[in-house]
């Protein structure tokens, strides 16, 4: 079968293999300069995310089909072959400080642990960042995985410093998400960043913050005037 990697067609055996094994086959038999990320082969290291037919996927978890079009992740700098630079995306982790700030005295029970179980499945593959259309109009948007990982800590019963933590996500953060859900579709771990962002919005309002986006009102006809 034939697959298209960044415009070049490669012929590979018509057997059932993962895209990663197909890329390895091509590298070892056809083009040793083919560059792609890999390590664990089992979907946890986050290094092999690419786009297949315009959809983000981990190459080690996808069975390649005849005619598949393979491209690098979007919204990252494509540095070589299918490899991208993750630094800009990952800097957002430091911007909103996705870590436990101050250990509270509280004990984490079963229900509390289950609250953050899904969000702590994040493997930092950056698929969600690649899928997020907000980044096309606002480069400074914190992006889905930073916000999911922030929620993971905000919701952690052991985090004492919730308010100052939440404050950091008010700008370029939770209110800039359009709730399109592309991140949720892209996530190989079944995480729903859109839902995590909604949770953060609720927590923000409970903490006294609100959506800073100018809201339509009576004065400007709710932003709608067909005679303008």
């Amino acid at each position: 079968m034939k697959i298209d990697i960044q415009g070049t067609l490669y012929e590979i055996p018509h057997i059932e293999i993962t895209l990663l094994n197909a890329l390895v086959y091509i590298r070892e038999n056809i083009n040793p300069s083919l560059k792609f990320g890999y390590n664990c082969k089992s979907g946890v290291c986050g290094s092999c995310a690419v786009r297949v037919n315009f959809q983000e996927t981990l190459s080690c978890q996808y069975k390649v089909q005849d005619g598949d079009k393979i491209e690098p992740l979007l919204r990252h700098e494509n540095v070589a072959g299918l490899l991208v630079d993750y630094k800009k995306a990952k800097q957002n982790l430091q911007k909103i400080q996705t870590w436990l700030h101050v250990r509270s005295e509280k004990v984490m029970g079963e229900a509390c642990e289950e609250l953050i179980e899904k969000q702590s499945d994040c493997i930092l593959c950056s698929s969600c960042f690649s899928a997020c259309p907000v980044l096309d109009v606002k480069q400074s948007f914190l992006g889905p995985f930073a916000l999911t990982r922030a929620w993971r800590y905000v919701a952690d019963v052991r985090e004492e410093e919730k308010k100052s933590f939440i404050e950091k996500m008010q700008n370029d953060g939770i209110w800039d998400c359009t709730l399109c859900g592309e991140c949720t579709v892209a996530c190989p771990m079944g995480i729903d960043p859109k839902s995590d962002i909604l949770h953060l919005r609720t927590k923000s309002m409970q903490a006294g913050f609100f959506d800073p986006t100018p809201q339509p009102s009576f004065e400007d006809d709710f932003g709608f005037n067909p005679n303008f």
């Binding site: 436990l100 250990r103 984490m108 029970g109 079963e110 642990e113 800590y153 952690d156």
Partner: peptide, 13 residues
Amino acid sequence: LEDIGMPFSRKKD
């Protein structure tokens, strides 16, 4: 590890 955020699975508390 618990104090720095490790999400160990729980059995009750």
